[in-house]
């Protein structure tokens, strides 16, 4: 362990910008970005599954409101949604006295809410497409077996829809990671926030932003390979047989 500390000190010797302090900011930023993106994706995914089923429903009173929701959240920039949720809520008189305030006071939760609602809207549409693309034969076979709608959804449609949605969903995850860069406009010290801090303090745009870009690249690679691995496992039956 002392070896590593020494090696680290050697590495940083004479470096004005990348001191242990600024690297600490980048590390905290990495933690914040990861938490924010991971939580919003997980919650968004949980929301998106029932929404996608509702969106594919033939009953318009179910599908229409969900369509409106996805239309609004896909039709407006994420930055605007973040502004509305962060700065907008304080214009409700007395919001400071409600039980919501301890959460809304921090920048983290408004950002989490905005990101979750946004990714849930996109994921809903991805899943809806996959559900709609279920083969007629599979549905007819399920019917012939006498499956109820719910059982058919659970055993036949959803498992194959998830597999079909996987490549598109992988892209959504990467988009979400990159979109999270706007969190720093509401004072959140995410990766981009750390880079902006270093940029403003040392007037070093190249160093600050290239370094953070490299971190985003590494994260993207990790996500890319995770989804490649998943696809290999789950879509094995679609691969050409040799």
């Amino acid at each position: 362990m002392p070896d590593i500390t020494l090696w680290f000190q050697d590495l940083l010797a004479g470096n004005v910008i990348f001191t242990p302090q600024t690297l600490g900011y980048y590390w905290d930023g990495l933690v914040t970005t990861t938490q924010l993106v991971f939580l919003s994706l997980v919650i968004g995914l949980v929301l998106a599954v029932p929404l996608a089923i509702g969106r594919s429903s033939e009953r318009r009173w179910i599908s229409l409101p969900i369509y409106l929701y996805t239309y609004v959240f896909r039709g407006t920039p994420l930055l605007i949604q973040l502004y509305i949720i962060y700065y907008g809520v304080v214009f409700f008189d007395g919001i400071q006295e409600t039980f919501l305030w301890p959460m809304l006071r921090e920048a983290f939760y408004p950002a989490l809410i905005a990101f979750t609602l946004n990714t849930a809207a996109y994921t809903t549409e991805i899943f809806r497409g996959a559900i709609k693309a279920t083969g007629r034969g599979e549905i007819e076979a399920a019917r012939a077996y006498g499956m109820s709608d719910a059982l058919m959804m659970r055993r036949i449609i959803l498992p194959s829809a998830f597999r079909r949605a996987l490549p598109a969903y992988g892209n959504e995850v990467i988009f979400m990671l990159h979109a999270s860069a706007i969190a720093s406009v509401v004072t959140l010290m995410d990766l981009t926030g750390a880079a902006r801090f270093v940029y403003a303090r040392f007037y070093a745009p190249f160093e600050a932003f290239l370094f953070v870009a490299a971190i985003y690249l590494c994260l993207t690679f990790a996500i890319l390979y995770f989804f490649r691995w998943l696809e290999k496992r789950l879509l094995a039956h679609l691969r050409p047989q040799s």
Partner: peptide, 18 residues
Amino acid sequence: VNRYSTADDMVLDLQAQR
């Protein structure tokens, strides 16, 4: 320490009790 791009945003958050 919360950092803002403009003094206006900062004043807004002070008024909002953030």
